[in-house]
């Protein structure tokens, strides 16, 4: 009597998961397998049936890894990643600390502070493209008015400045995630810790350093990893404004993979670059795996 019931439960458990599994298997797992296979097939094209006839070879891996161009592309990715990650974090931490105080209208302020999170990446970067316009951009006008620059700059067309210019909308769209996660971490700190510290005569700086900092450390690391992965893979913000240019000034690895496939139609090279990028992400995830599975679900 007991046994068929267990089986029924198992069928139910897997049956409920099945539709979601099928979607993920067809559109996530299978494409990864195809990518992996294509990375070993020099001369691969957009046609799957023709790719099946190609011979396997490691030659493109060798070419890509020994070509310094790929490493400068990864370097650019890391400039973009860290250039946006830490400013976003500190902006998020600052706003979370402010919103953690109790005051009237806190909910309204919170909604407004995290509003940029909801703005589409394409729209965000077009907003900044317009603000950074070489002739009529408000950035130039404001910066020149206060004397920070002497002449108007072409923020999105100058190879020296364009990385900074695509990092700005990334920070803008990225910081609310830190605000939300850190605010939740701050609100879970027991208040009596602070009360005890006050009795001991701690000032606010010491309270922050000895109570707040250790309590939000774990949430911070997790949020940094998640946001870092998001920046590393970021496509919309860069592609919709610069397509990786001018030249290759904003060609991060995510953009490079796409251009290699859809501009130069080198599917094998794009797949190799993608697999290397994926391996890098996997290493990071592996290192922080215990943290991600403890809280990340």
């Amino acid at each position: 009597m007991n046994k068929p019931k267990v089986n029924q439960k198992t069928i139910l458990a897997y049956g409920l998961l099945l539709p979601a599994f099928i979607m993920c298997a067809v559109f996530i797992v299978y494409p990864v397998i195809v990518t992996l296979l294509n990375s070993f097939r020099p001369g691969a094209t957009m046609s799957m049936s023709r790719n099946r006839e190609l011979e396997f070879s490691l030659s493109v891996y060798k070419d890509v890894i020994t070509d310094p161009v790929i490493w400068t592309t990864f370097g650019r990715s890391f400039v973009y990643l860290f250039g946006s990650l830490f400013p976003s974090y500190f902006l998020g931490l600052g706003t979370a600390l402010l919103l953690n105080k109790s005051f009237g209208g806190r909910r309204v302020f919170r909604t407004l502070v995290i509003l940029p999170w909801a703005i589409p990446g394409v729209v965000a970067s077009i907003m900044f493209l317009w603000m950074g316009d070489a002739t009529y951009g408000i950035f130039n006008y404001l910066l020149k008015s206060v004397g920070l620059i002497d002449a108007y700059k072409a923020w999105f067309f100058d190879e020296e400045l364009v990385m900074f210019s695509v990092i700005l909308p990334t920070i803008w769209k990225g910081y609310p995630f830190f605000t939300i996660t850190l605010l939740a971490a701050l609100q879970s700190i027991p208040l009596d810790l602070y009360e005890a510290a006050e009795v001991d005569g701690c000032n606010s700086v010491r309270k922050f350093w000895h109570i707040t900092r250790p309590e939000i450390l774990e949430a911070s690391v997790l949020a940094l990893i998640l946001n870092g992965l998001w920046s590393f893979k970021q496509f919309d913000i860069i592609y919709s404004t610069t397509k990786g240019g001018p030249g290759v000034a904003t060609t991060t690895i995510a953009i490079e993979i796409y251009n290699e496939a859809f501009r130069y139609f080198d599917i094998c090279k794009a797949s190799v670059e993608g697999i290397i990028a994926l391996a890098m992400c996997a290493i990071v995830v592996r290192i922080f795996y215990p943290l991600m599975t403890r809280e990340g679900k």
């Binding site: 893979k233 990028a277 994926l278």
Partner: peptide, 8 residues
């Protein structure tokens, strides 16, 4: 989380 969408 790890997969770049521009790859997939």
């Amino acid at each position: 989380r790890m997969l770049p969408a521009s790859l997939i």
